[in-house]
Structure formats: structure tokens, C-alpha cells
Design a protein around this nucleic acid. Sequence first.
DNA 1: GTCTATACACAGATAGAC
DNA 2: GTCTATCTGTGTATAGAC
Lengths: 235, 235
Amino acid sequence: MDYKEFTKLYASSSWEIAREVFLKNRDSIRIQKEKTAVNNLEKIFNAVFSITYKKGFQAMSMRDLSRETGMSLGSLYAYFTGKEKLLDIIQTQGWSIIKKDLEEISATHENPREKLRAVIKAHIFLSEFFRPWFYFTFMEARNIKPTKLEAVKSMEEYTQQILTSILITGEKQAVFKPGNHELTASMIKAMQQEWYLKRWKYRKLNVSVDQFADHLIAIIETFCLVEDIPPTKIE
Amino acid sequence: MDYKEFTKLYASSSWEIAREVFLKNRDSIRIQKEKTAVNNLEKIFNAVFSITYKKGFQAMSMRDLSRETGMSLGSLYAYFTGKEKLLDIIQTQGWSIIKKDLEEISATHENPREKLRAVIKAHIFLSEFFRPWFYFTFMEARNIKPTKLEAVKSMEEYTQQILTSILITGEKQAVFKPGNHELTASMIKAMQQEWYLKRWKYRKLNVSVDQFADHLIAIIETFCLVEDIPPTKIE
DNA sequence: GTCTATACACAGATAGAC
DNA sequence: GTCTATCTGTGTATAGAC
């Protein structure tokens, strides 16, 4: 599967994400009409991403946000009770996107080798499609309250656990070599993260998301596979 | 070489770093006595790292810094002309540390295989020793002015270039396989970065910096080396 | 060299008209 | 549902005593 196919099958649109946020937070949002609310939420999120990419969430003032969205200060506060709540909404939704799609994909494949490929690719493709959400959740993780921070860390451990268990299962089936699977899983995560943290670099180098994912998989398969079956034989 | 040996050979102390900053910025620092200035600068840097690790530089107030250092607001402003200047000093010094030691090490080895190992390890060991500097320069890179930001990006490209050229030289000498070396170098950098961005994870997993570095090198050598010479044969 | 006290700008947030 | 006008706290930075 390449990125193009992926987007057709899995990715929900930016509007659908905003709608999900609206439904989840109806009690704290003062707007009644769904269409208005969802459209403006979408506008707000895009503005937040655009501003914070350059200077971070703390440095973004509500006046910045007002200018970028074209909405007044007063209006903004009808969509969230305060700046902190806005941060919380985006963070929570970000982690929710990651978790949902990753679980879906890790359930669909049987063979460990294919499963490993599918999960690695899915995560990279997701991070490409929802790059602002991924980037934001990572970079602004420090700004959330300690209680929520624990949730973030366990989320990191959870997604790593998915990879580790694939490697362990593969070893039992003699598909993968023995080794420190936990550490290998960490390295995979590190490389996946690179894609959304340093996009400017890959745009400059003219590396596509498909190339990037294939290269990562080549490195990991060379390291993990018992026999080096040429990649063309499967799929 | 392991981490313990490395620290004996290369790393300059926290005090020496502060002294270097003092000498570089004598014109903007209002304190005359070297000993006083250097001691306080060291205290200030440690306080900045401790506070910003939790909430970021923008969220750190000068009052926070005053509390953490035990110095008054007025005193702090004798060491730097403003908060922005403080950020600039730390960023500049951070990049300077990385550049200096990396150049030194990449010049010391001849054989491409050993050179690749040495450079990879050196970067990881450096980031362990100066973790607060590395973490800070990465996480707060967004807060610097666009002109300086270009310098940061070219720094990233420069360190990557060191790795790429080792891989290219190695390919010419038939030590490394052909491939997209630029992309491989990127992946190495991504994994190196993981060490200082997610230290909490490796502390929890009980992974030492030596283990981490060896695992990274094993992955990369398995992927790049023409023949898989057992690692014990060299060094 | 370091302190306390203070100036002044700008942030987040709300009230109330439309 | 959205706007403008405004309140109040906190931030950076400085003046001037010690």
C-alpha cells in the first residue's frame, strides 16, 4: 500500500475531525448550530497550527489567534472556555486520532512480516496526513498538566508495545531474529517521528513519504528478518 | 570506546562552558569579576534548563528564574540584556558545543567503518553529557529569529553531511553497499536524537547509553556493510 | 554587584450592545 | 452568534538605594 491508497481508505477529513471535537465538547461550547460551530472550529485549529508551528503555543496570544481566524476575541471564547482548554482539546483529539487508526491497522494483518510493514507504514502515513496534529501533540506536550502528561507517556509506551509484540511473535514463528525487541521498537518509533518533526528537510531533499517509509522498512527488515527475502516477493 | 572513556577524553565541564560564554559575551555582561560571573552564569543555565524542561522557555518568567537561581530580578539583568538575549546565548553555545566536538572526532579516524562508528557514538555520548543543551537547542529552536533559524537548519544539514560523506567514501572503498546515503544518514540522526528527547523512556527501560549506541550501530551496520563481519573482529 | 520598588506594556478573559 | 470596549493580572525591564 502506498500513501495515496492509504488516504482513500483510512483518513478522515479535517472537517470530520472538527465535527468529532464539537460532539465531544458540546457542553463547553456555547454555539448551538452544528454547521457554524464545526466550520469555525476547523478554522480555529488551522490557525492554531499555523501560528504555533512558528512560535509555539505559549507564545501565541489570543489576539494572534483572533487575527489569523478573522474572528473577534469575544467569539473565540464561545468555542472554548480558555486558552488552556483549547490546548487540552487539541491534545486530546490528537492522541485520539493516533490511537484509533493505529489499533484498526494492527488488527488487520496476520503474518508478522506484513503486520510490521503495515503498522510502520500506517503510522508514517497518518503522521503525514495529520502532520499538524502530530507535530502539535509532540511539541506542546510539555504544556499540559502533570496528570495528563502521564497519559501521554503511556500512549507512547502503548504504540511502542504494538511494535514490540509483533517482533516477539515474529521471533516465535522464526520469521525474525532474536534480539532486544523493545529497543528495536524504540528505534522504529524514533525514525517514524523524524518524518513529521523535520518535514522541511525532506521537502528540500525531495524525498516522498513513500520513499521514506520504504527506506525505514528496508533498514528494519535487514536487521530483523531471519533470511533476507527480497522485498519484491511478498505483497 | 564506551561512554566512561569518552567523558574522560572529550567533554568539557559545565563550568568551562559557562566560562566560554562569559568570554564570548563580555561586552553585554555587566559583571567584571570572572569568578563571580562564571559561577552565576552556570547557576543561571542550570536553572533555565530545569524550568524549561518542564514548561518551555516562553512559559518561563523572569520571576521563575529569579526564584530558581536565588538571584534577584535586578541581578539577572546584569548577566544578559533581556530574556531574548539569554535565549540567544544558550542556543549559540549549544550549537557551538555540538559542532566543535563533532569536527574533532570525525577527523580522528581513517577507516570508514570505524569512522562511522566513532561519529555515531560521539554524537550520542555528547548528547548524553550535555543533554540539557541538546534538548534545549532542539525544543526551543522555534523561538529564535528567522535569520538565526537558517543557521540552525544549515547546522542540521552540516552534521548530516558528515555522516553522508562517510557512507559515500565507504561505498567507494567497497566497505558499504550502495544506496540512498542521504536518507540513511537522516535515519541515523533521527535515532541519535531519540536518545536526548526521550531519556525518561530509557531510564524506565533500564537501557544504558552504551547499549543504545551499540544497538543503533548494529542496525546501521547490518544495513550498510557489504559483508557482515562480526563486530568483535574490529576495534 | 546585588537588592527592592516600580514603570509600563500586553496578556487572558468578560460584559453587554447589536 | 458575533462584535467592541474594558477589567485585571502578570510579564519584562529599569531606576536607584545599599
